[in-house]
Structures are given as structure tokens and as C-alpha cells.
């Protein structure tokens, strides 16, 4: 793991999204652990990153990249896909219907994180997840 952030320090790491979400969560957890979130918020953040990567695998297929950054104030994950299929910047603001078989990903990310932004440009889409550090 490159540059895990010590308490109050800066750090950055990035890795491609392959099929192995379990490995992706392990790397995310290792990076996040040093940021001293409480255990629930750490689990929430890892879940949100995993959901965003899951969406890339479901909808965009290839060219997925996770970038994790930490500064003294916040943890930020950017999950990028090269397909640019995620264009609705308001997606996930309302819950899916009770019992729905789809539509949970962005709803969960928005519930789990302090801030969620959907960015779209001609070369792809990015979901930016932010957690404030204690």
C-alpha cells in the first residue's frame, strides 16, 4: 500500500477497478484506517467506494480507476470510468421503491458519505465521495 495517511497527514493512492471488489475493499480499508474515522464511518466509506466500483463494473465495464486522497480535513475517493455513462448528477437523491431490485448504489453512497458529487465530462464520469475527518 503506497502512502497510507498518518493521522493528520496527506496521502494518495490509486488503483484500477478489476473484477475483484474484495481486494479493492481491502486496499481501501488499509488506506482509510489511518484516517481515524470511527468504525461505523469507516465501514460506510468502504461500502460507498465498493458500490461506486460495483456500478463501474455493472454499467461501464472498463477503464475504471479508484483514487483515494487524504488531507488533514477529509478523505476523498474518486471513482472514475472512461465510458461516461453516468450523466445524471442528481442520481440517487431519492430512495429506490421498497423491495426494488435495482437503484440502491448511489442512494447508499449518498447516505453513507458526507458529500457525494457526480462529475461528467467528455472523457468519462467520476463519482467523488467525501468523508470529513475527526
Amino acid at each position: 500500500m503506497a502512502d497510507p495517511p498518518a493521522d493528520g497527514e496527506w496521502g494518495m493512492t490509486a488503483f484500477p477497478i478489476a473484477g475483484d471488489l474484495s481486494g479493492l475493499r481491502r486496499r481501501t480499508r488499509a488506506f482509510v484506517r489511518a484516517a481515524s474515522l470511527d468504525v461505523f464511518r469507516e465501514m460506510n466509506f468502504v461500502l460507498a467506494v465498493s458500490e461506486a466500483a460495483n456500478n463501474v463494473l455493472d454499467h461501464a465495464g472498463t477503464d475504471g480507476l479508484v483514487t483515494l486522497r487524504s488531507d488533514p480535513g477529509r478523505l476523498v475517493a474518486e471513482i472514475r470510468d472512461g465510458a461516461g455513462l453516468l450523466t445524471d448528477t442528481e442520481a440517487g437523491l431519492v430512495p429506490p421503491p421498497v423491495g426494488s431490485r435495482r437503484g440502491y448504489g448511489l442512494w447508499l453512497m449518498r447516505q453513507m458519505c458526507d458529500e457525494v458529487e457526480i462529475l461528467h465530462d467528455p472523457t468519462g464520469s467520476t463519482v467523488r465521495l467525501t468523508m470529513l475527518r475527526p
Binding site: L47, S50, E51, N54, R102, Y104, L108
Partner: peptide
């Protein structure tokens, strides 16, 4: 140890 939206849908099914 972990559950995501895929797990939720699997449980609903």
C-alpha cells in the same frame, strides 16, 4: 463482514 447492494438484492430475491 460486508454487505452491499448486490447482497441486498440477493436477500430480497
Amino acid at each position: 463482514s460486508f454487505c452491499d447492494s448486490s447482497g441486498i438484492v440477493t436477500l430480497l430475491d
